[in-house]
Amino acid sequence: MKKVKVGIVGLGRLGRQHAENLAFRIPNCELIAVCSIIEEEAKKAQEEWGVKYAYTNYEEMIKNEELDAVLIASPSGFHCEQIEKALEANLHVFSEKPLGLYLEEAVRVEEAVKKHENKVFMLGFMRRYDKSYAYAKKKVEKGAIGEPVLIRCYGLDPSEAIGGFMNFAKNNYSGGLFLDMAIHDLDLARWYLNSEAKQVWAIGGAYGYPEIGQLHDAETGAALVKFENGTMGVFVAGRNCSHGYHIETEIIGTEGTLRIGTVPERNMVTVFNETGAVKECSEGFLERFEQAYLSEVEEFINCIREERKPDVTVEDGVLSTALGYACKESFETGELVTVQSPHNVARSTT
């Protein structure tokens, strides 16, 4: 098969990383179009990387008949509409998480994906493609810790990223702590425990940054989840981690425990100085999951070329959104929330 010709929308931090991977690091594909509402951003990418087309209008880009696929790395609130439009334009679609900020739109996208079964759709739950997380999944499946009974996840962003988040959130692009940040951990829990969520109780607050509370969001939050098979999940998400980017997962089983990222170290180097023995931390998600971001999009391209579907499905996006939305509802109301079938919720609002 010829090279897969891809266009990308969104050239922020993650979008730019995806674009560079498509342009230079992923075999059998060609980045031929970039799109950003910031014209200078699109033109700069076009000139630096030798991209054939640059757009400021997404609808114009997906009309380009040379395109085979589109990668959506725009703010979360645009994902659903852009996915639907790309499918209608007969394009394969890779979309960053979350699938949607509202259950009704996520279910609508699921229906659109099923309508276009001849197209590859993939959602960016990149941690499934991280070597450590993938290895842990194999160990769980082989019974290395017996039957999993509890998963504990920490997802903490560095304090220095607060400013960038505030600009993002003020435009109503975030969806809140649980849909924006914890969604990765919620997906991992479903993956490792092999079950869907039943009930959730979530709490949180804006402790160091009251301005986040003014956005009706939490700076640091926690959720306790009961799954349908009786297993448990404890999730902590925060935007104010002074020591850096801290992603940690623990799976407790009947015969043992697995931990991933217990020390959020940057590499194998230890610095000995006046402060002691120091293991430096990753500065952010792009550094920690550099390999995973590359591997997931490489899988997307391979799926198109080999005419097969990826393991991460649109249903994973819908069900993770349902759980994230339940966490958001519990945080906002202070009540224990029963996680409803997203399809029932969608029907009740139409």
Rank of each mutant, 00 (worst) to 15 (best):
A54S: 15
N64I: 03
G146A: 10
S195V: 01
E332S: 14
D185M: 13
N229I: 05
R259K: 14
N171Q: 15
C241I: 00
Y55D: 09
I162N: 11
G221Y: 13
K138R: 15
E84H: 01
I37S: 09
N21F: 09
E88S: 14
L103E: 13
L286C: 08
L286P: 00
I212A: 08
D311F: 11
A189L: 12
L177F: 05
I260A: 03
G175N: 08
E30P: 03
I37W: 00
F178D: 08
G10N: 01
A223H: 03
N267V: 01
Q340L: 12
T220P: 00
S74V: 11
S132C: 10
C29D: 01
K138I: 12
L150I: 10
L123K: 04
G164S: 09
E296C: 11
F168D: 05
S282F: 12
K5S: 11
L150R: 14
E307M: 08
A202L: 07
N302H: 12
S195F: 06
G276M: 02
K97H: 11
Y173L: 14
R13H: 09
N273A: 03
E160R: 14
G7Q: 04
I145A: 06
T270N: 02
E298W: 04
K142V: 02
I260S: 06
Y129H: 13
G230D: 08
M166F: 03
P342D: 02
L103F: 04
